[in-house]
Simulated assay, not measured.
Amino acid sequence: MSRKTVLITGASRGIGKAIAVKFAKKGYNVAINCLRNEDQLLQTKKELESYQISCLSYLGDMGDLNQCQEFYDRIRKQFGSPDILVNNAGISYIGLLQDMSTEAWDRIIRTNLTSTFNCSKLAIPGMVEKKSGKIINISSVWGVAGASCEVAYSATKGGINAFTKALAKELAPSNIQVNAIACGAIDTEMNRFLEEDELIALTEEIPTGRLGKAEEVADLVYHLGYKNAYLTGQIIGLDGGWI
């Protein structure tokens, strides 16, 4: 049986890398991308290939449809159409909305939300043709509850949640499932700006008493990627009971 292919955006580090490693260990062809850190991306590619799978890496902006199309063209040439799409690329912005520049707003919308649209748009035709596919969007609890001083980030993740629910209904007749994972506080570089006292205060708010691990997100993504054909249109919380 030929290997299946998974595409993961924002996969040079953190949650995206953990997801890529999980699928590589399970024998999938893996296509990964990041925006600008080529050295880190190539290092991740080398690590993934140590699991005796094929990996295609691409340095580029998935918020730009032309760059996204180029990446997809390379994937199709090497592997065929992706079987699983994981929209993970994302950035945060912390600060008062009144102090946020238009440029910063446009950047976070492009990175978090437009990239999800672009990648999904290009993945869907191949999945429809095969009558099979999974789209998994990495969201956040703040897309459900909203966070003070993270209005733009919350807006993008809320948009991803609505996008997930709507697209799931659109693609269900074609046997394509679309779900999102609303992550809580995960121990990645995105949260390492916190001071020690802030980290202690945060973990005290979480019923499980700790931050989540990127590998725990990866386990759930993998599960959604190969099982549960009746599970679609869901925003699945992974936050240790926090929100």
Rank of each mutant, 00 (worst) to 15 (best):
N137K: 12
D99I: 04
I138V: 06
Q69S: 01
M62C: 10
I94F: 15
S148G: 12
Y93D: 08
A89E: 02
I160V: 08
T114R: 13
G126K: 08
S120K: 05
P173E: 10
M127W: 05
N118G: 03
A145L: 13
Q78R: 07
V144G: 01
K130R: 15
S120R: 08
S101F: 10
E129G: 14
F71W: 02
A155V: 11
G143D: 08
S174T: 08
N87E: 01
I75V: 11
S101D: 05
D73G: 01
V144E: 08
V128M: 15
I135W: 05
K131M: 10
W105G: 02
S92A: 11
N112Y: 15
S139D: 05
N87S: 08
R110T: 06
K130H: 13
Q67K: 06
T102H: 09
C68E: 00
S115Y: 12
D64E: 05
I135F: 06
Y72C: 00
A166Q: 10
Q78W: 02
G90P: 03
F79H: 04
N87Q: 03
T164F: 07
Q69E: 02
V86S: 07
K165T: 01
T156E: 11
A166S: 10
L65I: 05
F163P: 07
A155N: 11
Q78A: 03
A162V: 12
T116E: 01
K134T: 06
F163L: 13
G143L: 07
S148N: 12
Q67P: 00
T111M: 05
K77V: 01
M127A: 08
R76E: 14
G143C: 09
T102E: 05
G95R: 15
